[in-house]
Design a protein around this nucleic acid. Structure first.
Lengths: 224, 224
DNA sequence: GTTGATCTGTCACAAATGTTACACTTTGAA
DNA sequence: TTCAAAGTGTAACATTTGTGACAGATCAAC
């Protein structure tokens, strides 16, 4: 196992090599290699191990009652899988996970995770921080979904980006088609709304660049 | 502080009185009483303490950029507030929290929470379990939101309830108006869809009871 | 019981969104 | 460079959903 890879894993952030070595020797942690298109976890399978990607990436898919796949999320190294769902009464993988390429990953049984967290305060802090970041993204997405119209979601999204970048000219962080998917709307509908907003003098949009022309107008949009 | 109240707090589940006593004496934990309509936490205020309701209830509201309130969730004793967001890089309350009645609550600074979790493995396990339950509910709601039509959301919801209750006759766990809000749709639209589904012979609905007449049809609905 | 508040069922109409289709642009790999 | 794949911009039309309004049903407190 490569030390430079280990040191990039968020869960082991700012931990000393010695400590890490002790953890790895004392606990039941294995590094496993997977080929492409291998099933790492079944949907609804009990979630009894933490999987941390070292290299490569996987896709997460949901299966609906009739067996068809529906939604996808991609996860890349060095991130963990399903860290939010590892514990809990009856914890199960909410999605099916398949490798998109060759993957190496750390696999740590739930019990060992618990021991590990109990042993090292830094590790515990890291774990809690990572969980919180995931939860925060989840909750933020839920907020977007709960705005009624595409216009409102867009206004909110653009204002948020503008605030983060401290500029009235915003570069989208996703492709528009990806943004449409993130919002849960169809791509043409999103384009149409952008065009309308440009006609209304709120923004000027071209490809991935959006320039805010009437910030007050955008803010007003959000309330009705 | 009342011991019977403490023992009902999920975070302290299956812990011995002795241990609890030690925790409370060693750490910086205070019980605070609040009157009605007191602000417990501001939106975007740094989240630097865990608040656990002992008695009473609070409401959580979001404020949008123009200052208007929008969404509400109610939280009752003995549940904790914002447990998912306590840690993380730049952790802030995602909502504003106000008491709905007289409330007593435990307030534990973030640092003390960390110490506490490090000291007691049972406590740590409880904390992780509770977090996972919250995350699971959050993610489940996100799934519902991502179904396109009301019909699909309903089909999914009814099938889920039916599976849980192991019966084809389902009693709704929320009022229909609450269900509409949960789905993020208007109440009349939800009613209309229920009526249509009855016309189509999929279900028979009356008040809070829904009887499944054509399970296959419901399943088919979900895919397209 | 009576009463006021909340929930339910329904409607006609307006608004928002999805669908399908097509042409054009950009990007990245061979 | 060339080509295929992915992304973008736009349009007409169908479908879904929201809105506002109303009346009756239910429930909880008095």
């Amino acid at each position: 196992m490569d030390d430079t890879v280990i040191s990039k894993i968020p869960l082991f952030h700012s931990m000393e090599e010695k400590e890490l070595a002790r953890i790895f020797s004392e606990l039941n942690i294995s590094e496993i290699h997977f080929k492409k298109d291998v099933l790492l976890a079944l949907q609804d399978e009990p979630c009894n191990r933490l999987i941390i990607l070292l290299t490569g990436s996987v896709k997460a898919e949901m299966i609906d009652p009739s067996g068809r796949m529906i939604k996808v999320e991609d996860i890349f190294a060095p991130n963990p899988l399903a860290i939010l769902f590892l514990f809990g009464q009856n914890s199960r993988f909410p999605v099916q996970v398949t490798t998109r390429e060759e993957v190496s990953a750390l696999v740590i049984p739930k019990q060992s995770v618990l021991k590990m967290l109990h042993m090292h305060q830094t590790l515990l802090k890291n774990y809690l921080d990572i969980s919180a970041e995931f939860a925060s993204r989840l909750s933020q997405k839920l907020n977007f979904m709960s705005f009624r119209t595409i216009r409102q979601k867009l206004a909110m999204y653009i204002l948020k980006l503008s605030k983060e970048m401290k500029s009235d000219v915003v570069k989208l962080d996703k492709a528009k088609s990806a943004l449409a998917e993130y919002f849960g709307v169809s791509r043409p509908s999103l384009e149409r709304e952008l065009t309308k907003m440009q006609h209304d003098g709120l923004i000027i949009t071209e490809r991935k660049t959006i320039e805010i022309k009437d910030k007050t107008g955008l803010i007003r949009l959000i309330h009705l």
